[in-house]
């Protein structure tokens, strides 16, 4: 067992930023569209910019990884090699996706649809690279895209929900949003779990591989974190949101605390996912 070198660590950190950028910018747009929320350009715009920068840096870091030193960051030969592979295709999808999402933010009501399309394109990029792309199954790629779209939607609702919960004037709106998201979550959460389990089953292949390989163990750790996230989400849906709807003054603070905890767990899940997709081998 070897820990990743400096380029491996930089790749993982950049991928973490890439996940945050693409998923939060896309999710914010998706939820604003579905729940008719007022959309502020700054939030999705900032995360789209983060996603764009992380995509470019991630590509360049792949080149540094291939060279083993900083010269690789701008090594034309290595960058050309990467460009000709799925890494290049992925970068094109990510630049296009984040670009279209940003343009849509400046286009008025119709722009939300354009932004959402951009988000979907960027999310689809993850099906072109990594362990899933190593498998030629279109079903697996669609499963990953569905899994990520549902997660983006989940992340996208947390920011407005928390913001609305901070002011007494908007508690009713927060309760309404939370309630409506709870209805969607009845389909969304099983979808995320089913897609995740299906991909894990295909990629890991056996209980033995799950327990004995680094990839499998990391997956178990990720699943544990997801269980914690589900417990928090259940507390929101079954306790804090109904209490907020009834006008319980403590409910808003409980909801804010719960969402903050959810974010902490989400960051941990995204970090372990970045390790899974960057530096751990699939069981052979």
């Amino acid at each position: 067992m070897t820990l990743p070198d400096i380029w491996g660590v930089a790749t993982i950190a950049t991928k973490f930023a890439l996940y945050l950028g693409i998923l939060i910018s896309s999710g914010t747009v998706f939820t604003s569209l579905v729940f008719s929320l007022k959309i502020y350009r700054r939030l999705p715009g900032s995360f789209a910019f983060l996603g764009l920068c992380a995509a470019l840096l991630s590509f360049s870091l792949l080149s540094a990884n291939l060279a083993g030193d900083a010269t690789g960051l701008l090594d034309v030969e290595l960058l050309q090699l990467l460009w000709s592979t799925q890494a290049g295709t992925t970068l094109v999808f990510q630049i296009m996706g984040m670009g279209i999402l940003t343009v849509g933010l400046f286009m008025g009501p119709l722009g939300r649809w354009v932004s959402a399309l951009g988000g979907l394109i960027a999310i689809w990029s993850f099906s072109n690279i990594g362990h899933i792309a190593g498998d030629d199954s279109l079903l697996l790629k669609i499963t990953l895209a569905t899994h990520l779209t549902a997660i983006a939607f989940w992340l996208g609702v947390l920011i407005p929900l928390k913001k609305l919960s901070t002011s007494e004037k908007t508690w009713a709106t927060a309760a309404d949003l939370g309630h409506r998201f709870g209805l969607v979550a009845v389909i969304l959460v099983p979808l995320v779990l089913a897609a995740g389990m299906f991909m894990s089953f295909v990629l890991v292949g056996s209980i033995d591989a799950l327990l004995r390989t680094g990839y499998g163990q990391a997956l178990i750790f990720k699943t544990t974190l997801v269980s914690l996230l589900l417990a928090l989400a259940a507390a929101n849906k079954f306790r804090f949101i109904p209490a907020l709807r009834k006008g319980n003054p403590n409910a808003a603070q409980n909801l804010i605390t719960s969402i903050t905890a959810e974010w902490a767990v989400i960051f941990a899940i995204l970090a372990i996912t970045a390790v899974l997709t960057s530096s751990l081998n699939l069981p052979m």
């Binding site: 067992m1 491996g8 680094g214 163990q217 750790f221 390790v275 530096s279 751990l280």
Partner: peptide, 8 residues
């Protein structure tokens, strides 16, 4: 988790 499972 990183220390226990990370491997290049």
């Amino acid at each position: 988790a990183w220390a226990s499972v990370a491997t290049a």
